[in-house]
């Protein structure tokens, strides 16, 4: 399912003394099967964009097209449920939304809200719990007896069990230790590859964006500052640094080498392996001089 934002504007508390413009003139295309990363500082408007992806917010101007559904400021929307089933959102610290007595019930909650039968929901729960790397025994436990990392995974399973076409992730690894972070991101990446699941990752982490995404959108002060493939984005790291944004370590290192050696690599390396090869061949060439 394709999603596209067309010149979207959103004002919080419109027409009150507290009105505040959050995003303006935001146009983003998310064709089916993409892995898109949205990057920006806190307050850059990326969370507001995220909430438009399944009509949690309605634009105050412009329009959002989700599949065959159009969401605009003046149209009364019915059947948003259908949209919400197709676009699953994993919010930041999703473990805060757990509430049921057992893990299984909590995972089944979403699917059953969308009219799935109990048997089907339970079947999906079994699949989802394995997908997030937990064992089936955990299904009968209370979510509140689990560790923080396990709760996070259960909450993610709850969204996966809705079997959405698009999954939106808001800082899914915040607060986890390095291994937890890597496991979660690898899992989403695998889902994206195996099931062609469209994925939108909202993050601060340039590392994750460059590693997993095939398209990147950079938000700044409520507007789209730049968009393109990771190669395009990181070819001019100076721009990003000027905004006070990080660049991936690999890119930063390549830049340092290029500055010191007064040379330019033929490409922007996005993985350590690529960079190692480039440096190794450079040194061999350099040694001959």
């Amino acid at each position: 399912m394709d999603i596209s934002l067309q010149k979207v504007e959103y004002r919080y508390q419109a027409k009150t003394p507290f009105e505040r413009l959050a995003i303006k003139d935001v146009s983003i295309n998310i064709p089916s099967g993409t892995f898109l990363a949205i990057i920006g500082h806190t307050g850059s408007g990326k969370s507001t964009v995220l909430q438009h992806l399944n009509a949690l917010l309605k634009p105050t101007a412009g329009k959002v097209v989700i599949g065959d559904k159009e969401v605009t400021a003046d149209k009364k929307q019915k059947n948003l449920k259908e949209v919400r089933q197709k676009v699953g959102i994993v919010f930041q610290f999703p473990e805060h939304q757990l509430f049921e007595e057992t893990v299984e019930k909590d995972i089944c909650f979403g699917p059953m809200n969308f009219g799935v039968t109990m048997e089907e929901a339970q079947r999906r729960a079994k699949v989802a719990i394995k997908q997030v790397g937990l064992s089936e025994e955990i299904l009968s436990k209370s979510p509140f007896d689990l560790s923080g990392g396990q709760m996070r995974r259960v909450a993610i399973a709850g969204v996966l069990a809705m079997e959405p076409d698009v999954i939106v992730l808001d800082e899914p690894t915040a607060g986890l230790d390095p291994r937890g972070r890597k496991e979660i991101m690898d899992m989403f990446h695998a889902l994206h590859i195996e099931r062609k699941l469209s994925t939108v990752l909202v993050t601060h982490s340039m590392e994750d964006a460059s590693k997993y995404a095939d398209h990147i959108v950079i938000m700044q002060n409520g507007e789209v500052y730049k968009k393109g493939t990771p190669e395009e984005i990181f070819t001019s790291p100076e721009d990003l640094m000027q905004l006070g944004l990080d660049v991936p370590e690999v890119v930063r290192f390549q830049q340092k080498i290029e500055e010191t050696f007064h040379i330019k690599f033929s490409q922007t390396c996005l993985t350590v392996e690529m960079l190692t090869k480039e440096i190794a061949s450079l040194l061999k060439g350099g040694g001959q001089k």
Partner: peptide, 11 residues
């Protein structure tokens, strides 16, 4: 925040 999260889960 929780309202939005649950709305996204179909509430």
């Amino acid at each position: 925040k929780i309202m939005k999260a649950q709305t996204a889960r179909g509430v």
